[in-house]
Simulated scan of single mutants.
Amino acid sequence: MKFSKGGLAAIILSVSVSGFAAAGGANITDDVVKHGSVQIEVLSQGKGPTIVMLPSLGRSVRDYDQVAQYLVADGFRVLRPEPRGVGKSKGPMENLSVHDFASDVAMVIDEKKAGPVVVVGHAWGNFAARQLAADRPDLVKGGVVAAASAGKVPPGSTEKPINAEMRKAIDGAGDLELPEAQRLQYLKEAFFAPGNDPSVWLGGWHPETHEAEGHARNTTPVDDYFAAGAAPILDLQGENDAVAPRRFSQVLKNMLGDRVTVVVLPNAGHAMAPEQPKAMADAISTFAKRVNQ
Results as ranks from 00 to 15, higher is better:
2 K>A: 12
5 K>H: 12
6 G>P: 06
7 G>S: 10
9 A>I: 12
17 V>M: 06
18 S>G: 09
19 G>D: 13
27 N>D: 15
28 I>A: 09
28 I>R: 05
28 I>E: 08
32 V>N: 08
33 V>M: 03
33 V>C: 09
38 V>S: 09
40 I>T: 15
46 G>R: 01
53 M>G: 02
53 M>C: 11
55 P>N: 06
56 S>Y: 01
57 L>R: 13
58 G>E: 09
59 R>Q: 11
64 Y>S: 07
70 Y>W: 07
74 D>L: 12
76 F>S: 05
77 R>E: 07
78 V>M: 06
83 P>T: 12
83 P>A: 09
84 R>Q: 11
85 G>E: 11
88 K>Q: 14
91 G>Y: 00
98 V>C: 12
101 F>N: 12
109 I>S: 03
112 K>Y: 11
116 P>H: 01
117 V>N: 04
118 V>N: 03
129 A>P: 05
130 R>L: 10
133 A>N: 06
133 A>L: 06
134 A>F: 00
135 D>N: 09
145 V>G: 09
146 A>S: 14
157 S>V: 05
160 K>Y: 00
162 I>R: 02
162 I>D: 06
166 M>G: 10
172 G>K: 07
172 G>C: 04
175 D>P: 05
178 L>N: 10
188 K>P: 01
193 A>L: 02
194 P>R: 09
196 N>G: 02
206 H>Y: 15
209 T>W: 01
216 A>Y: 04
216 A>D: 07
221 P>Y: 03
225 Y>Q: 12
226 F>C: 04
226 F>V: 06
233 I>M: 14
233 I>P: 03
234 L>F: 09
235 D>A: 08
239 E>H: 10
239 E>F: 04
239 E>Y: 08
240 N>P: 02
241 D>S: 07
242 A>W: 00
244 A>H: 04
250 Q>F: 05
250 Q>Y: 03
252 L>E: 12
257 G>D: 12
261 T>L: 01
263 V>Q: 14
265 L>C: 02
265 L>S: 04
284 I>C: 06
285 S>W: 00
285 S>Q: 03
289 K>Y: 05
289 K>I: 13
290 R>S: 15
290 R>W: 00
